[in-house]
């Protein structure tokens, strides 16, 4: 058994296929729902948070190993819970390096949770009405924004996505400042006093706005930078592996091809 990349992990499994993909989808939707349930002060919120954490840990991509000519993707933290074994790789590529490489082509089911969390806030508003306290607005927008950014990440090529983020980053910062202003005006209209006189509401709004900015920034920094390698097996199933940089991606692709060669040599 060979651990790819050794101790300082340079490649890792991504939960885009099989059971890990399903669990990762459940995790995303659970967290999205938990944010909105928190606004309703529903006790069910704790269940969703626990479910979100549990499924996230179970589906967390761990290392990649080469064992007996097969590529094994490991999932789960702190211990490996799932192993996906690819014995017959017929195609391998760095999707970020391809001019027309879009993740959605290979992992369509991954769009489902993103669409769901984009739709959750409008559904919430439809069912529960506008929030009584405008300080909750950033929290309602949060799942939609994240879902939208993730959807774009899957449907755009890495280059286009990076370009898009570069162009809209200024607009997002301006929108956040504007949103802060709108919240303070709405608060005054609702309660007849300044939001600065209500510390809990002020904190709620500030934390919400900070999270909106932080998540957008994290996605902007990470997305499209880390190469994603897609592997196809002889049954036409696709799997994904993340790499720390282009060099690691290239080494991994070569390693996979060497395994294809050695597997054939061993069988003949």
């Amino acid at each position: 058994m060979v651990e790819v990349g050794g101790r300082g992990r340079r490649v890792w499994a991504l939960p885009y296929s099989g059971v890990p993909a399903l669990l990762s989808n459940v995790s995303i939707v659970s967290f999205g729902a938990a944010v909105l349930l928190a606004l309703l002060r529903s006790p069910v919120q704790a269940v969703f948070i626990a479910l979100g954490f549990l499924t996230a840990l179970l589906s967390l991509g761990d290392g990649v190993e080469v064992r007996g000519g097969a590529i094994v993707l490991r999932y789960g933290f702190p211990v490996t819970v799932f192993r996906l074994e690819l014995s017959d790789v017929v195609s391998v590529f760095n999707v970020n390096e391809l001019r027309r490489g879009k993740l959605v082509k290979y992992f369509k089911s991954q769009l489902m949770p993103f669409i769901l969390i984009v739709l959750l806030p409008p559904l919430y508003t439809l069912v529960c009405g506008k929030p009584a306290n405008p300080a909750y607005i950033p929290w309602i927008i949060l799942p939609s924004l994240l879902g939208l950014l993730l959807m774009l990440y899957f449907t755009f090529t890495a280059k286009t996505y990076r370009e898009l983020l570069r162009r809209i980053s200024g607009a997002v910062c301006t929108s956040l400042a504007l949103l802060g202003f709108v919240i303070s005006v709405m608060y005054r209209q609702s309660y007849g006093s300044s939001i600065f006189s209500d510390v809990p509401s002020l904190l709620m709004a500030l934390v919400g706005l900070t999270l909106l900015g932080a998540f957008s920034a994290i996605l902007a920094i990470l997305a499209g930078k880390r190469p994603i390698i897609v592997l196809e097996d002889s049954e036409g199933k696709f799997y994904a592996v993340g790499a720390i940089d282009g060099e690691a991606a290239s080494s991994f692709i070569k390693l996979v091809l060497r395994e294809v060669v050695s597997r054939v040599e061993a069988s003949t």
Partner: peptide, 14 residues
């Protein structure tokens, strides 16, 4: 060269 893509089922590489 770095290998960007290989498809051994369809005989090509990038």
């Amino acid at each position: 060269a770095d290998i960007v893509k290989v498809d051994v089922k369809r005989g090509y590489a990038v």
